[in-house]
């Protein structure tokens, strides 16, 4: 399926008019994107390091997970919205950028992983879940999100 039409539409959209005309607005949105990345990183790491038993061992992992879930989702939403805005400035260029697609694949895998595997599984009492399953979940999560972040940075280098 060729997705070029989405990028062509984005390239001529109202968002692109704004992101191309106002460099300052683009920069501020990019900064918000980066700050949200930090929040996302914190939520991911605290949840996963707790599942691995490396931090907050005296706080039940269910409590850690439920507290971090909403901050994770908030960060992801802000990143997605700011990300679409940033993409609009260089839509066609991004379509031909391999690193952008690597990031999009990573992001899709990450979102599916969180909302269809990790959260449904962690909805059960954690002590009833196999400890190796928990560890695998945590390590996969850290690897996925740090890869998404790194590949995102590399869009700018490639």
């Amino acid at each position: 399926m060729d997705l070029l039409f989405i990028f062509e539409w984005l390239d001529t959209s109202f968002l692109a008019d704004m992101s191309k005309a106002y460099g300052g607005v683009f920069a501020v949105v990019q900064m918000v994107h980066l700050v949200s990345l930090a929040l996302l990183g914190g939520a991911v790491l605290i949840t996963d390091l707790r599942l691995l038993g490396l931090v907050l061992r005296d706080v039940p992992s269910e409590v850690v997970t439920s507290n971090m879930d909403r901050w994770f989702s908030l960060a992801l939403i802000i990143m997605a919205v700011s990300g679409v805005f940033m993409s609009s400035a260089v839509a066609i260029k991004l379509y031909y950028n391999e690193m952008f697609w690597a990031k999009m694949i990573g992001l899709s895998v990450g979102a599916l992983f969180v909302y269809f595997i990790k959260r449904p599984l962690l909805a059960h009492p954690h002590e009833t879940i196999n400890v190796w399953a928990l560890r695998l979940l945590a390590i996969s999560s850290i690897v996925i999100w740090f890869t998404v972040a790194a590949s995102g940075r590399w869009i700018g280098f490639s």
């Binding site: 700050v35 930090a38 996302l40 990183g41 914190g42 790491l45 940075r153």
Partner: peptide
């Protein structure tokens, strides 16, 4: 250079992420 800068960004995720929480 690109790897040092990427590592800087990933470290921001760790440091600032913890600090934010």
């Amino acid at each position: 250079y690109a790897w040092i800068e990427s590592t800087h960004v990933l470290a921001i995720m760790v440091f600032l992420g913890m600090l934010f929480i």
